[in-house]
């Protein structure tokens, strides 16, 4: 169990929902088979703060999303594939629109991937897998994600390739001195060795929340978003400008702040469309880096 996030009491800007483009599902709650040291919601096998979503809940939200004109669906956790209904959930979703799933790649079963291959083939839409790997050596990755996770994630990548998926490897910049060009080159080499000759990579900043606070540090007091900072800023770069996340405890403003009580906006999508004041230090990371959660194909510019 974690302590709810504190809120800032300084004046803060509000962000309105321009349009609900991306609907997120916290599909495995805060439950994960791993306990990464940088996990911003401190997921673990025992963190049941948020629980699994069932197919029915997802279907209701999908139906509700149609008149709202949602463009894409995203699934996260925890580890989504710990949810026993993950495959049917994705099969359903692909009837409505494109689906992206954020996974650690360590728990795939081949029969699930076979079903998902058929589901994607029967759909108009893309099914994107985003696999988190945080270093291109076992040493670097396992220091953050736990012993043996590099090899297991690489096996996951090979399973995805064998089923015709082209995973996007997402890399958290876990070291302040990390050089992005070297990261890209290192990953390209390692993935090629797995048979992935056209690797897709996305490098992300870490969020100084949850376990990451102990691994590195939390936010400094001055790391916050003030009203002036948003004056000439493209708000489309903030997730809260075009997304909401469905959890088993209601709809929240974004997947980053589900541990903040004030980030719960309502029980249904309809109730969650209100503006949100950026009362959290984590908002500063969004401000600095922009679009940290969407796929490159959405055409939102990363800062």
């Amino acid at each position: 169990m974690s302590i709810p996030l504190p809120i800032l009491d300084a004046p803060v800007p509000s962000v309105s929902l321009a349009h609900l483009d991306d609907l997120w599902f916290q599909v495995s709650g805060t439950v994960c088979n791993l306990t990464c040291h940088h996990c911003f919601i401190s997921c673990s096998p025992h963190n049941h703060t948020f629980g699994f979503l069932d197919v029915e809940t997802v279907r209701r939200a999908l139906e509700e999303s149609v008149p709202l004109g949602v463009k894409e669906y995203y699934f996260t956790g925890g580890e989504p594939f710990l949810n026993r209904e993950m495959v049917p959930i994705l099969e359903w979703t692909l009837r409505y629109g494109p689906a992206s799933i954020l996974t650690n790649g360590t728990v795939f079963k081949d029969e699930w991937l076979e079903r998902l291959r058929r589901a994607e083939d029967a759909s108009l839409y893309s099914l994107e897998f985003r696999v988190s790997i945080d270093g291109f050596t076992a040493e670097d990755n396992d220091a953050v994600r736990g012993s043996g996770t590099f090899d297991r994630a690489m096996r996951g990548v090979r399973q995805l390739l064998a089923h015709g998926f082209l995973p996007i490897i997402t890399v958290a910049r876990t070291r302040d001195d990390a050089d992005d060009v070297a990261l890209v080159k290192g990953f390209a080499r390692v993935l090629k060795a797995q048979g992935y000759d056209r690797p897709r990579l996305k490098i992300l900043p870490t969020l100084r929340l949850g376990a990451e606070v102990d691994r590195q540090r939390g936010y400094r007091d001055e790391e916050r978003v003030s009203p002036e900072m948003l004056e000439d800023f493209d708000q489309g770069l903030l997730i809260c400008n075009h997304s909401r996340v469905v959890t088993d405890r209601g709809v929240y403003v974004c997947p980053i702040l589900i541990e903040a009580a004030d980030a719960r906006l309502g029980a249904t999508l309809a109730e969650s469309l209100t503006p949100y004041p950026l009362r959290h230090h984590a908002c500063f990371t969004c401000y600095q880096y922009g679009t940290i959660c969407s796929n490159a194909s959405s055409g939102r510019r990363d800062a």
């Binding site: 483009d21 999303s65 149609v66 008149p67 709202l68 004109g69 949602v70 463009k71 894409e72 409505y96 629109g97 494109p98 108009l124 839409y125 893309s126 796929n295 194909s297 959405s298 055409g299 510019r301």
Partner: peptide
């Protein structure tokens, strides 16, 4: 003006 609308990532209801 610079939004990408790809066939496979654009839902019909959007």
């Amino acid at each position: 003006m610079n939004e990408f609308l790809w066939e496979s990532t654009t839902s019909t209801h959007f």
